[in-house]
């Protein structure tokens, strides 16, 4: 990363932390309020969410001030999101998502094969033929562990096969 982009990072990691604290803190306070605070001797279901939410908002504010200062150029800050992480993130999440979609209608083997086919490209280390080896090996080991080792009822293939 160049020195320049580092100084002008729009979303620094400090900023992201501040945003997370403020957003989740505010949500916790707002929702918690509706659950009822109760009285001091009989704290309601909403008391803890409100207390924790307020603390988060306070921390978020404390975190935001220096982060904004850094944005204006008063200091340096490192960018939160790195380009190199975007591809693995999307592909890994996509692979898990595909598994979730396929496992119920199609069964374990197709779900795993599609998952591996997507996840494989998250890193450009492996060769194409290696991927088929990985599919066979991983699917085989998983079936051995879960279906035969632990005796869990897993459907391997779509109905009708």
């Amino acid at each position: 990363m160049s020195d320049d982009s580092r100084r002008r990072a729009v979303v620094s990691s400090d900023m992201l932390a501040a945003v997370l604290f403020l957003a989740i803190g505010a949500a916790s306070v707002l929702l918690g309020w509706s659950y009822g605070l109760g009285s001091t001797s009989q704290l309601g279901a909403g008391a803890m969410p409100v207390i924790v939410g307020c603390a988060l908002i306070a921390l978020g504010a404390a975190q935001l001030v220096p982060a904004l200062g850094a944005l204006r150029g008063a200091g340096t800050s490192s960018a939160a999101f790195q380009r190199g992480e975007l591809r693995p993130l999307m592909l890994i999440l996509g692979a898990v998502f595909a598994f979730a979609l396929l496992i119920a209608p199609l069964g374990l083997v197709p779900a795993l094969i599609v998952q591996i086919a997507i996840a494989w490209y998250a890193q450009d280390g492996g060769k194409r033929w290696e991927m088929f080896g990985a599919m066979a090996a991983v699917t085989g080991i998983i079936i051995l562990i879960f279906k035969y080792g632990l005796g869990l009822p897993l459907r391997l293939l779509p109905a009708g096969f």
Partner: peptide
């Protein structure tokens, strides 16, 4: 590592799925 993470990922999904046998858990995983 590319063999390792593919296996870890598969193991994670199948393990989580077997807890409830519903895809909800895997969406939660995402």
């Amino acid at each position: 590592y590319h063999w390792l993470y593919v296996f870890v990922l598969a193991f994670a999904c199948v393990g989580v799925f077997t807890m409830g046998s519903s895809a909800f858990q895997i969406y939660a995983l995402v």
